[in-house]
Amino acid sequence: MENVKKRSVITGYILITTVTFLFLGPILWALISSFKPKDLLYTPSLIFTPTIANYQEAISSINFFSHLTNSLIISVSTVLICLILGLPAAYGFVRFKFKMKNSLLFWILSIQMLPPIAAVIALYDLFLSTNLLGTHLAVVIASSIFNLPLTVWMMRSFFQEVPLTLEESAMIDGCTRIQAFFKITLPLVGTGIATTSIFVFLFSWNAYLIPLVLTNRTTQTLPVAITGFVSDSGVMWDQLLPASMLTVLPLVILAIFIQKYIVRGISFGAVK
């Protein structure tokens, strides 16, 4: 029995490690290549003296930190707007019955499915006429359009897992409905909020077409800036690879940081 178990654990290790490597491969390859000296970039060789010269060059040539700041401002604000508007809406959809509830839900859903390309010209005109072109606000508004539906739908499924009886018993104990929401329900969907925030942050961080059209130099986000390493004369791999790694890095840090809150389980069962 012990033996069988041990063997199965070893198989588990091998399986999971292999799969992880398969998925990690391209990123690992890019990470290794980003430390290669320029002249070795087009060879598969793995023997080289790592250099950070590429990183320095990439950072200085695109004004990296100002783009990083822009990306942070835009993504954090988008998350905040989505949560402020989306949380109550999701709660409302779960806890209350009303006419046209389903149609409203699917209408919201269909906005999420709209390809940004289809809306980009109209959004440009909209922000031009409101004089917001080139501001952070324009990008935040546009990207919240493409993330608010996601927030509502994800949070809706988290709220569904919180039994109404919990809130009711709190109200019997003398809480108001709002108090019950803040004291009982909101903490229970904490992991849900973390998960939703991470996705909204991710999608607004990685958005490309919308910030491309709505920003200028002072408000350009990282993904827009790093595409500048693809020019009509080819791809500047020596700078694109380090810049890409640096673009992904904040997200990875965020993922590591928040993962222990999500790992507890997407709320289900936490209360069952």
């Binding site: 700041t69 942070l72 401002i73 954090v76 604000s77 909101l186 903490p187 904490g190 809150y261």
Partner: peptide, 24 residues
């Protein structure tokens, strides 16, 4: 325990927001 955790998440969010506002 849950309340403690949600507080931490909120704190991080608020800190991030403050940071970005200051930089802006």
């Amino acid at each position: 325990k849950f309340i403690y955790k949600i507080n931490t998440v909120l704190l991080i969010t608020v800190l991030l927001a403050l940071m970005t506002i200051i930089v802006a």
